[in-house]
Amino acid sequence: MPVRRGHVAPQNTFLDTIIRKFEGQSRKFIIANARVENCAVIYCNDGFCELCGYSRAEVMQRPCTCDFLHGPRTQRRAAAQIAQALLGAEERKVEIAFYRKDGSCFLCLVDVVPVKNEDGAVIMFILNFEVVMEKDMVGSPAHDTNHRGPPTSWLAPGRAKTFRLKLPALLALTARESSVRSGGAGGAGAPGAVVVDVDLTPAAPSSESLALDEVTAMDNHVAGLGPAEERRALVGPGSPPRSAPGQLPSPRAHSLNPDASGSSCSLARTRSRESCASVRRASSADDIEAMRAGVLPPPPRHASTGAMHPLRSGLLNSTSDSDLVRYRTISKIPQITLNFVDLKGDPFLASPTSDREIIAPKIKERTHNVTEKVTQVLSLGADVLPEYKLQAPRIHRWTILHYSPFKAVWDWLILLLVIYTAVFTPYSAAFLLKETEEGPPATECGYACQPLAVVDLIVDIMFIVDILINFRTTYVNANEEVVSHPGRIAVHYFKGWFLIDMVAAIPFDLLI
């Protein structure tokens, strides 16, 4: 008679799926529990143990900040960024110097990925580790590398530091407007667009060049630039800015003055950032001319202004700041037409079709709590990747769950009947059967004279019903998954307890 339990259901295979997918890609990662103190490590794979030199037993239950890997060259700011990422709910990448158990130093890129439950609360953290440099290539500990984003994938490793954006290309926007319009339909740009040429040739750093990471940081200074100062900065030398009595002219307006920039070969870094931020506020060169004239017309309804409409929906549905990093990277690809469009465009503009998908598509409701890094690593669709929660398995109709209350009560009843059979069957065979043979035949009273025979008949009927119930009862397979398919249940029961239950259900007393 089957006594099969499996009270692990309803099970959740999400954690096993993450481990299996990460292991298949030869990654070095740990999984931490966000619900406990210090976000203790609950799993670390073999790749991480080989990377740091510690065994799994030495890593388990330690804080996922990996303070046991810190050393003299470990930056405090990087460690603080990892700790801050564990307090938030967004994906974050941090470069930090770690030390192995043998004392060797290596520069590592740590990717902190939160995993949320159905309520939107962070319950786990996945920390992925990628070695960037070994100890002989690690720089000085005073050099802070965590304020910069990861290198873009479309640049060669040897040319990542030679990417320079020439400031004269930004200063000569109005001069290039006529050349853009003359391109017409034969050019790649839309009317009114501004073409910015980027020099990728390796050259020595000069005062006129600005690194790509500095251009990325310009967006942080746009908020500090007032509207009046932006307007004066875009007017140009024809209309000098008016300053109040006793007030000095704005240095932001002076930063885009061609006369002032041409007199000296070098520009201050602050002026460069502010000038680029001011130019980015204009949607095209037409807006710059309109600002000089004193009238700013409404933005025209053409394809170039609607190019950012799908980007707005993608940004609203993005799951991490990696989408913004990807957008900034692609927006700086050289030799393309940049349409400086305000994100607050007309909502009635139709979304044009684009061959290049900048932001990841909208994630469906079932995966809105899973970050983009987890979705990318697992390579699963929205119909396959579940949320991290207890999910009731989908069972067929008329199927009994093996952990249901009805099955528990039924098993206790069958257990009592088995005990009765084990006690009274030998007793009936030894004593009652002998008395029946010696006594007179009682054929007239039937079952009324033999109450134990009636009980034995009921017990046999219950055993037959138990066999039928076992054909529709779920079970737990070797992978700790609840199986509810009727065919698989029948095959599993035939290979197991079916023969024993059938022999126990045969009414031998009635056959004798």
Rank of each mutant, 00 (worst) to 15 (best):
E134C: 09
C105R: 13
K161N: 14
S313K: 11
V194Y: 07
A293Q: 08
Y99A: 01
V94R: 01
L127N: 01
F163E: 15
T201S: 15
P227E: 06
N257S: 11
G246L: 15
G314L: 07
A282D: 07
K332S: 13
R100Y: 01
S272H: 11
L385G: 05
V194K: 01
E23T: 07
L315R: 09
S179E: 06
V325T: 14
A282E: 12
D342G: 15
T319A: 14
S255Q: 12
V377A: 05
S26W: 06
D199T: 01
A382R: 13
N220Y: 10
A85D: 01
A172D: 14
F340W: 15
V131T: 15
Y54S: 01
T145P: 13
F340L: 15
R328H: 12
N117F: 05
V215M: 06
K93W: 12
F98E: 01
A303N: 10
V112G: 01
E95Y: 05
G24M: 14
D321S: 14
T319H: 08
A83S: 12
E91Q: 08
D102R: 01
P227G: 07
L380R: 04
R328W: 08
G246I: 15
R62T: 13
S351T: 05
R35I: 08
P334G: 08
I96S: 01
S250I: 11
A188I: 06
G184V: 10
Q61L: 12
A211C: 07
Q247K: 06
S182K: 09
G306W: 03
L256Q: 06
G120T: 06
G187A: 15
S322N: 15
Q61E: 14
G24H: 10
M308P: 06
S354E: 09
P298I: 05
G246N: 04
S26D: 15
V36W: 06
S318A: 08
H7L: 15
G88Q: 08
V370I: 12
H302E: 08
L107I: 15
V8N: 04
K101R: 13
Q81E: 13
T174H: 12
T74E: 01
P361M: 12
E90W: 13
E91N: 11
T371A: 14
L109V: 08
S182D: 05
I330S: 07
R20S: 09
P151I: 14
L155D: 14
F22Y: 14
P237Y: 11
A203I: 06
F14T: 07
R301N: 09
S207D: 05
R5Q: 08
P240D: 13
S153Y: 04
F125V: 06
E177G: 15
V341L: 06
A253N: 05
T201Y: 03
R5E: 14
E214L: 07
R35N: 08
T329C: 08
R92G: 13
P240W: 15
P347A: 11
G246V: 14
K332H: 10
M124Q: 03
D199R: 01
Q25W: 13
I31G: 01
D342S: 12
V59Q: 01
A244H: 14
G226Q: 06
T162S: 08
P300V: 15
S55D: 08
G381A: 14
I333L: 12
G88P: 01
L210I: 06
R181P: 13
G6K: 07
R273F: 11
L86I: 15
V122H: 06
R269E: 15
M308Q: 11
H302V: 11
P202H: 05
Y327I: 08
A217E: 13
P334F: 01
V3D: 14
L173K: 15
F48P: 01
Q11N: 15
N38A: 14
V374G: 01
S331C: 13
D213F: 05
D286M: 06
T65F: 05
V370W: 11
L338M: 15
G53H: 01
A193S: 07
L87T: 08
L256M: 05
N128L: 11
V131F: 06
A156R: 13
S250F: 15
S379H: 11
K373Q: 10
K135N: 10
M60V: 12
C52D: 01
R92T: 15
F68G: 01
E372T: 10
F29K: 01
G381T: 05
A89S: 14
L200K: 15
A89H: 07
R292S: 05
A285V: 11
Y43N: 01
P352F: 04
A303Y: 13
V94F: 01
I31T: 01
I18E: 03
E95P: 06
C265G: 11
M218D: 03
K362T: 12
S243D: 13
S266T: 15
A193M: 15
S104D: 08
R292L: 11
P361F: 05
D286T: 06
V3G: 12
E289C: 07
N146V: 12
I123D: 14
M308F: 07
K364V: 13
P299V: 05
S243W: 04
E95D: 14
N369F: 12
S313Q: 11
V59I: 11
D197C: 01
I359P: 14
L338I: 04
